[in-house]
Design a protein around this nucleic acid. Structure first.
Lengths: 210, 210
DNA sequence: GCCGTGCAGTAACATTGGTTACAAAGGATT
DNA sequence: AATCCTTTGTAACCAATGTTACTGCACGGC
């Protein structure tokens, strides 16, 4: 575990802290599409992402979904931290976007390390900062952009996260994550194809030039 | 200053911490409508709100605004903290909604107090947590609600913050904060009046039963 | 009182996005 | 090949929101 930790966190945590994490953390390997956290869950530990990607989703009362942002290597879920500290329920759902490796750290350690390690403090505050910025940019896109622009950002981000130019999703799935309807997404995708930006296929989309 | 601090923060901070804050903090009294932070500002200190209310706004590239949430007595701006720690520019604009009193604390102390005082740590994490929740609920409302529902929440919240049933705003101003247009807001307000929920007047609105 | 400015009311219209319905195509199973 | 299910394409329609344009009214300054 030390090796994985050093690879992903070696530059930001000192050796002592890495060792402590390795001692109390549990290593987890999860496949794509695995639900890590459900809305309303009480959270026992804090995840440190080693590889892969996790998507963070919000849901309203009617069960409508909305993609908030992705977590990647070196990230942690500040929502989770927030919930743990406040001993409250999760406000979000977390699902692995790709096969992922992560280390779960028990909550009690957070407080201890916050006092003991400056790098840990920085890490925690940095995570909050990053997540706040991501949330704001998601909010911008919902508040200020039209659907076509949101769709383009979505496709770009999804391609980046999946490290390739193929997006393995149906129009229906995309519609869910953008909180829209299948017909609308198909319509807009078709327009993008006609403009030469993408290629549409059954069950996947190829990015050409966005 | 000790007195004000004790009134607003006496229950959450120990005496030593209050004294330290009083020593290094500067007291500020600002009138309604005063711009505390502009987007892109570098931030030197952290505000602790003693009385009044501050509205936090987001702006897009075209200069369109959007109200994110309000800060009240006992709150601090976690966005500001985040920016200070990361030494980055402000993502938001902050304007006093009512006459307000606040104490500015220099940034360097944050780190020191985080190690020294458990109550300060809790306060900081709690603030982050609260602000994240507010942001999420704003996002919900934009993503999932229609304009009429958003307008009603807006009016309720505004009345609560201003501690009364009169809202001193023109339709144009409301439209700005909800990122809509004056005509749309007038239309919806008229509907609410016809339903008996509010009374419309020039330059103000009276809440009857929302 | 008279005028100018800003605010509110309203109609007509455009655009965006969501809904319903159905057809066609791809892929798997038998 | 015949069948079935899922995915995609498309048309017609509707509702919500935004835009433009014009009107009248209130209030302050003169």
């Amino acid at each position: 575990m030390i090796q994985e930790l050093t690879e992903s966190y070696g530059t930001i945590f000192e050796k002592d802290l890495i060792n402590e994490i390795a001692q109390v953390g549990t290593f987890k390997e999860v496949p794509e599409g695995y639900k890590l956290i459900e809305i309303g869950d009480y959270i026992k530990g804090m995840p440190l992402l080693i590889s892969g990607a996790i998507k963070i989703l919000r849901e309203d009362n009617d069960g409508d979904e909305l993609l908030l942002y992705y977590l990647e290597k070196g990230d942690t879920c500040s929502m989770t931290m927030a919930c743990c500290m406040g001993d409250s329920k999760s406000e979000i759902r977390a699902i692995t976007e790709t096969d992922s490796k992560l280390i779960m750290v028990p909550m009690q350690k957070m407080e201890e390390w916050t006092v003991k390690y400056k790098t840990w403090r920085n890490f925690v505050f940095n995570s909050y900062h990053e997540r706040l910025k991501e949330l704001l940019s998601t909010l911008d896109s919902i508040a200020f952009d039209k659907m076509d622009a949101r769709l383009i950002s979505y496709l770009k981000e999804k391609a980046r996260i999946n490290k390739g130019d193929i997006i393995h999703n149906t129009h229906q799935e995309i519609a869910y994550e953008l909180h829209s309807s299948r017909v609308v997404i198909s319509r807009l995708l078709k327009k993008l194809e006609q403009m030469g930006s993408i290629e549409l296929h059954r069950n996947y989309i190829k990015i050409l030039d966005l």
